[in-house]
């Protein structure tokens, strides 16, 4: 694998549309659940071990060549919120456009044809990693990092939180991100022979509930 290629894919400036999403932080801020760096850290930690782990495992499995159609269905079952399924497919579609332009590949073309409205973002991410010559660990790292850095960046805008504090939160979570990546890759490898049912299904009830509450607002800063 190329470390430089990993940085290209993981870069927040990679044009995949992630900046428009807060990963549930906007709803949590409005509900008074995030008021500062401490609340942000607890939020990001919970997100990392639930949807972060699940997304990373899906991405790792896709990077290992597990059937993306089965993975997409597994993502549906693990995302009960209609609003979150919509956000994930939208992000998947945007990532697909950027990925096909950056790392043209037959597998990406097949996936795009199979899901014209967008496959789930972690599935597209895993297939993108394959196209870029990256491995399951790289895909899992991109996914896990995004699951934490997304809400941290959004909270800087939502609360005028000091960017140094927000970055400190993300940095403190690094050892836990490493552990989650290891579990995600292990689960992805199990899915190669054992099918998608063995993938983790950890959920955060407040993330699911908050996403539906957020989708019902008339005006919002972030798409999800």
């Amino acid at each position: 694998m190329s470390r430089a290629t990993l940085l290209v894919l993981a870069d927040g400036r990679f044009p995949a549309g992630g900046h428009a999403h807060s990963g549930g932080a906007e709803a949590a801020v409005k509900a008074g659940l995030i008021r500062g760096a401490e609340g942000l850290e607890a939020f990001c930690r919970g997100r990392l071990h639930t949807v972060g782990l699940v997304s990373a495992a899906l991405a790792a499995a896709a990077a290992l060549g597990v059937d993306p159609v089965a993975l997409d269905a597994a993502a549906d079952a693990r995302t009960p919120s209609l609003a979150l399924r919509g956000a994930s497919r939208k992000l998947g579609r945007q990532l697909m456009r950027a990925a096909r332009a950056t790392w043209p590949s037959g597998e990406l073309d097949v996936l795009a044809r199979e899901f014209p409205k967008g496959a789930h973002q972690p599935v597209v991410l895993g297939v993108t990693a394959r196209a870029a010559g990256l491995g399951p660990e790289d895909a899992a790292y991109c996914s896990v990092y995004e699951s934490v850095s997304g809400p941290a960046g959004a909270t800087v805008r939502l609360l005028s939180l000091d960017p140094f504090d927000a970055t400190g939160v993300v940095a403190r979570l690094a050892p836990e991100m490493d552990r989650v990546v290891r579990s995600a890759v292990e689960a992805g490898r199990e899915a190669v022979g054992g099918g998608v049912d063995v993938l983790p299904a950890a959920s955060g009830p407040l993330l699911e509930i908050g996403a539906e509450v957020h989708a019902a607002w008339a005006v919002r800063l972030f798409a999800s």
């Binding site: 549930g24 607890a42 919970g46 071990h49 597994a74 079952a77 983790p200 299904a201 955060g204 407040l206």
Partner: peptide, 26 residues
């Protein structure tokens, strides 16, 4: 034969971090 819903909640002492925080049970 196809999963329609697959959800796991873990909480209490020893559960993965953040279980009582604003993303999980708050």
């Amino acid at each position: 034969g196809r999963a329609l819903l697959d959800q796991e909640v873990s909480c209490g002492p020893g559960a993965p971090g953040g279980w009582d925080g604003p993303a999980v049970l708050g």
